[in-house]
Design a protein around this nucleic acid. Sequence first.
DNA 1: GTAGAATTGATAATCATTCTCATTACGGTG
DNA 2: CACCGTAATGAGAATGATTATCAATTCTAC
Lengths: 152, 152
Amino acid sequence: MSGRSQKLKQGGAEHASAEHAEPGGASETRRTQQRQAIFHELAHGDRALSAQELHERLRAADAGVGLATVYRNLGRLAEEGAIDAIRRPSGETAYRACGAGHHHHLTCRRCGAVVELHDCTIADWSRRIAAEHGFDQVEHQAELSGICANCR
Amino acid sequence: MSGRSQKLKQGGAEHASAEHAEPGGASETRRTQQRQAIFHELAHGDRALSAQELHERLRAADAGVGLATVYRNLGRLAEEGAIDAIRRPSGETAYRACGAGHHHHLTCRRCGAVVELHDCTIADWSRRIAAEHGFDQVEHQAELSGICANCR
DNA sequence: GTAGAATTGATAATCATTCTCATTACGGTG
DNA sequence: CACCGTAATGAGAATGATTATCAATTCTAC
Ligand SMILES: [Mn+2]
Ligand SMILES: [Mn+2]
Ligand SMILES: [Zn+2]
Ligand SMILES: [Zn+2]
């Protein structure tokens, strides 16, 4: 529901040298060509792409990346907060390179164009509601959809 | 996102005699035991059930209803507005017999308990946002989740 | 340059949901 | 109540997205 540092593991330097703490040896998160291609593709298009769609685009753009790899990296990038996962009404999950901070999306049902909404009214509402019903650790999930100006 | 007449095709009389208009013959929507069992099961439990879970319960409660039938009826009931479909974060769709009118849900991530929220702030917000960005026919979808008082 | 672990990719395996189609049960009718 | 035509059911096959396998490859640090 919120992206953090868009280029956490992608864009810049970041020696990524975790303080080798955990017993047994932590992960290393390498910077591979495939991962770069995937993120790059996402960083461009203004519409959210599903794993399959992304895979198709990469194939077209000469850079053939395995489907499994696309899934893996999208999943990873998402949990790292580098990209956002969006659930389509049909069920598939689509991904998008998002700006930082908590926000929601307004998506055009016709062309898929996405607008980021950074002023979220829901937070207050959900907090109040939660308190009212004795709930803790409330999270909210919301998506708006409509028909954009162009598509009319 | 909103349920209409909870017992549209279930509870009462309703001769359901469509004015045999359409060329070729319209549907009839029969009142079968299976459909009744399904709706009945849903009308009780306070937590939303997936098709599979419902199927399991029915098996346990002696009334063995085919899985395909469970899916069919849940889908149908949902589009008739008799029940609400809720998307779980994991992806499956769960169903629930809901009160009438537009509302959202606050679900306990631990036990699955559901509270219906009938005062929706989002409507106004979404309307405003939509106008601001030149979008039409805006719809919104939202779910709250947390840990309920019991589960703490 | 090497070693060694992380990553890839082709493919098989899951898993929820949908489709098929022969069989059954509804809801009138006479 | 027996009978018909059709909608509904159910067992299993089919689909489609996502995940797991596992040998082969590629990063990265030394
Ligand atoms: Mn975003
Ligand atoms: Mn409800
Ligand atoms: Zn559009
Ligand atoms: Zn609970």
